[in-house]
Design a protein around this nucleic acid. Structure first.
Length: 832
RNA sequence: GCGGCGGUGGCGAAAUGGCAAACGCGAUGGAUUCAAAAUCCAUUGCCCGCAAGGGCUUGUGGGUUCGACUCCCACCCGCCGCACCA
């Protein structure tokens, strides 16, 4: 072989790892378990198998695998599993189009992914592999559902959901794009349907507060905080005497209650019809409500849009001052937040102000002050800041923030209010009227109602059907033999639930199943999970910042509360890698700019593909894929391979552990120093938040240095030994990124297997140097670099600096007023 | 509007408050070759200068400091998330 042939090298090492099951790791108590090594759970988000993996997957798994390798060689026992998130819509859409069962298409994709991952040489423990669509897995998804149901954390209720009239199906929130169906592009309708929910809102406070306990990127934490959207305020009850109904409202500004000059209900509010009935506005209200529900959420929410609404013809009593204020229905009030009704304070709220202007309603100031950059219309109103209260009865003159609690306490004593907390987070709607998902393990019995299936009847197997097209209900409804069953409680006739679960349910606990993947008696063994959890390093795309990561946290907390788990947070540390683009655009099959991982591997080899995605920029950021840059990395790996060939041939495999040869000034010493510098740099960069791009750059520098000096080192024992050491070191520290070549070069240099050797340690003595280049500045500008002994005193350094000709030119004839000395670095002479 | 992140060569980028532009891509020149590819060597922020050398440069403007890409203040621009959230 006279040419770098990745396919040959990679096949050879892959063969060794597969034959020896190198990356499999036992659980505590099993043979081969190492009691002495600390544990480390490295996990990348499991893929949804569709078609072939693209370079986005490549990046995710290259990053995770590098970390797994690095930890192993630092003495950790690393569990690094892989599986497939197999249920989901694309396979079902494909089935509707082609008639091919989703299982068949999915399993074909899984096979393609598995093959690609093997070809990439990823160090997964395949003995723990799982797919969420297998009964042996979803049996336990169903078990968790029943656990949640038993504790009231799963419930069935009516809700407004997105409905596509063309596809005849309910859509998930994430399938609704700008108010339109993701599949057919049609406008989505709102429908009131009975659905299954998980009570994630019970965990809102803990999901929010525990963010402080985990090491996650700040922007992900922020997104979760925003999503949960906790706001503290008060519930205040307004009473409409005309119809004798109490209307509670939620407000974060009870201090502005005296400024409420009107009251607004959302068009969807259930009492709107009753309020308008019998008034002169009845017809107008009905028209308005009908019209309002036709607006898409985007149109309705647009800030440019004029405020619209109609009067209800009723008044309501402001509990703080007894004023009768008019009631309106207007679509700027949303049914899904708060109580669907608001007190309107136009003096201190922009939206209420706009509405008041449009409908010529009174605007009253109750807080003194003016926003500095607001226009001075209406004497500086609306004003949203703080200040002294005015026009507020007995609270006049108080600071609004101080009166805040007092007003709420007073309302509470009157039975007209109380402090409350509101969340933006809503309960998790998990029903899907789809075929390709996990069946929900309950039946509907005429006498017993909703009956959960007993555990011993799990799994509820997904039945085969012929037609996957939705017809207004789940395709499962067509499997009548399956639907018609008997009630486990009374034995009478019962119907199975035909909805399936959101696929996010499947992926909310898979990281637990890996730890005991073949358990037929339980979802997992508590001891195994207690040992490995939490995940020490989770790696995935930022697009999962909210949904998946929030749901998995919720499951972990709920399962911990039930005594099935000992941790409160599933993922101790999270890393989100940036997206790879092509020509600056997101890859998509419609644009035809998808770069296939397999093609890249075919052309350049797995090592080049993996190293490139780690080198293209900081892994946390995005990057644009260019073939020229891939070739650059390929060139580098080729250079390392050729260096190995040459060094193996031209030097004798004697003492490769060069040690004392590090004398300053000799070429061998310089190369050794460079090697130790690279060890130190790569180690620090990997530890420092995935600095893979700079780590790889350091190995490049080492290889470049070896090329520069190699011809001077042949024929000299110390020189040859240094050369072998440098080459072996480059292979050793490049191994996490280019594992096959790393093994190959390391073996040729040392005769050993690199993954069985510990991560190298930089020798501090070789990191230090006895001379250094002293930077000399005059007035902060670099004027010279002078060789100086490392142990020179401050005085000696100043003397050296002043002696330099270039420096003298700049200080000549001037007075040196200050000498700044940073030992080992620089001298700055300040002159006047 | 609120929140988060960022702005450095032709491009991707690098720099514990201490030599701005490491490493890579691209480009230019040279060696090798019948020729090409591959490889190797050199140059490559901008401006003035034959050169030695000098000046300028990290979105803009200020500040702190002997010294600022880095810290502080104000502003401009870009990306991402949320958004008539009461």
């Amino acid at each position: 072989m006279d040419r770098y042939d990745p396919s040959e090298i990679e096949a050879r090492w892959r063969g060794v790892w597969e034959e020896e099951h190198t990356w499999e790791v036992p659980n505590p108590g099993q043979p081969g378990f190492d009691d002495s090594a600390p544990k480390c759970y490295v996990l990348e988000m499991l893929p949804y198998p569709s078609g072939d993996p693209h370079v986005g997957h490549l990046k995710n798994y290259a990053i995770g695998d590098a970390m797994a390798h690095y930890r192993r060689r630092n003495g950790f026992q690393v569990v690094h599993p892989m599986g497939f998130d197999a249920f989901g819509l694309p396979a079902e859409n494909n089935a509707i189009k082609t008639g091919e069962p989703p299982r068949v298409a999915t399993e074909r994709s899984i096979e393609a992914y598995r093959k690609a991952f093997h070809r990439l040489g990823l160090s997964f423990d395949w003995a723990r592999e799982l797919s969420t669509h297998e009964p042996s897995y979803y049996r336990w998804t169903q078990w968790i559902f029943l656990q949640l149901l038993e504790r009231g954390l799963a419930y069935r209720a009516e809700a407004l959901v997105h409905w596509c009239p063309v596809d005849q199906t309910v859509l998930a929130n994430e399938q609704v794009i700008d108010g339109h169906c993701e599949r057919c592009g049609n406008l989505v309708e709102a429908r009131q349907l009975e659905q299954w929910f998980f009570r994630i809102t019970d965990y809102a406070d803990r999901l929010l507060d525990d963010l402080d306990t985990i090491d996650w990127p700040e922007h992900v934490k922020t997104m979760q905080r925003n999503w949960i959207g906790r706001s503290h305020g008060a519930e205040v009850v307004f009473r409409c005497e005309d119809v004798g109904i109490d209307f509670p409202v939620f407000t974060t500004r009870p201090d502005t209650l005296f400024g409420a000059t009107f009251f607004v209900l959302a068009p969807e509010h259930p009492d709107v019809e009753r309020l308008a009935a019998g008034t002169e506005h009845e017809a107008a209200v009905r028209d308005y409500v009908n019209e309002a529900t036709r607006w898409t959420p985007e149109e309705r929410g647009s800030e440019e849009r004029q405020k619209t609404g109609v009067p209800l013809g009723r008044t309501i009593t402001n509990p703080v001052n007894g004023e009768q204020i008019p009631m309106f229905v207007a679509d700027y009030v949303l049914m899904e937040y708060g109580t669907g009704a608001i007190m309107a304070v136009p003096g201190h709220d922009k939206r209420d102000y706009d509405f008041a202007r449009a409908f010529d309603l009174p605007i009253r100031r109750v807080i003194a002050g003016t926003d500095p950059d607001e226009s001075q219309d209406d004497e500086g109103l609306p004003y949203s800041g703080d200040g002294q209260m005015v026009n507020s009865g007995r609270f006049d003159g108080k600071q609004n923030r101080e009166a805040y609690d007092e007003i709420v306490a007073w309302l509470e004593s009157e039975g007209r209010g109380k402090p409350t907390v509101h969340y933006r987070l809503r309960d998790w709607l998990v029903s899907r009227q789809r075929y390709w998902g996990c069946p929900i393990p309950v039946v509907y019995c005429e006498t017993d109602g909703i009956v959960p299936l007993p555990e011993d009847q799990l799994p509820v197997l997904l039945p085969e059907v012929d037609d996957y097209a939705p017809k207004g209900q789940s395709p499962l409804a067509a499997a009548t033999d399956w639907v018609e069953t008997e009630c486990p409680r009374c034995g009478g006739p019962a119907l199975r639930e035909t909805d399936t679960m959101d696929t996010f349910v499947d992926s909310s606990w898979y990281f637990l199943r890996y730890l005991d993947a073949h358990n037929d008696h339980a979802a997992w063994d508590r001891a195994a999970v207690d040992y490995w959890m939490p995940v020490d390093q989770y790696i995935g795309g930022v697009e999962h910042a909210i949904l998946h990561l929030m749901y998995a946290r919720f499951f972990t907390k709920a399962l911990a509360d039930m005594g099935h788990l000992g941790v409160q947070e599933p993922f101790g540390r999270l890393f989100t890698q940036g997206m790879i683009t092509r020509d600056g655009a997101k890859m998509s099959s419609s644009k035809g700019n998808v770069v296939s991982a397999a093609e890249t591997v075919e052309r350049y080899g797995a090592d080049t593909a993996r190293t490139y995605v780690c080198f293209m920029g900081p892994p946390a950021g995005g990057g644009d894929w260019t073939d020229e840059s891939v070739e650059g990395v390929h060139r580098f790996l080729t250079r390392l391979w050729r260096l190995k060939e040459e060094v193996a041939e031209c030097t004798s495999a004697g003492e490769s552990e060069a040690s004392a040869a590090g004398a300053t000034g000799t070429p061998a010493g310089a190369l050794l120093r460079k090697a130790h510098w690279a060890i130190d740099k790569v180690t620090r960069d990997i530890e420092r938040d995935f600095g893979f791009n700079t780590a790889i750059a350091a190995v490049m520098e080492l290889v470049n240095e070896a090329y520069r000096v190699k011809d001077d080192l042949y024929g000299d024992a110390a020189g040859e030994s240094a050369l072998r050491f440098a080459t072996a070191t480059a292979a050793s520290i490049l191994f996490p990124f280019a594992p096959h070549l790393g093994c190959d070069v390391y073996e040729a240099m040392t005769g050993r297997r690199v993954w069985e050797d510990p991560w190298p340690k930089a020798d501090p003595e070789l990191l230090a140097s006895d001379i250094f280049t002293l930077v000399v500045q005059v007035n902060g500008k670099r004027r010279a670099g002078v060789e100086a002994p490392a142990d020179a005193s401050r005085e000696e350094l100043v003397e050296l600096a002043r002696a330099n000709a270039a420096v003298q030119r700049h200080i000549d004839g001037k007075e040196v007023v200050k000498e700044v000395v940073v030992p080992g670095k620089l001298v700055n002479l300040v002159v006047r």
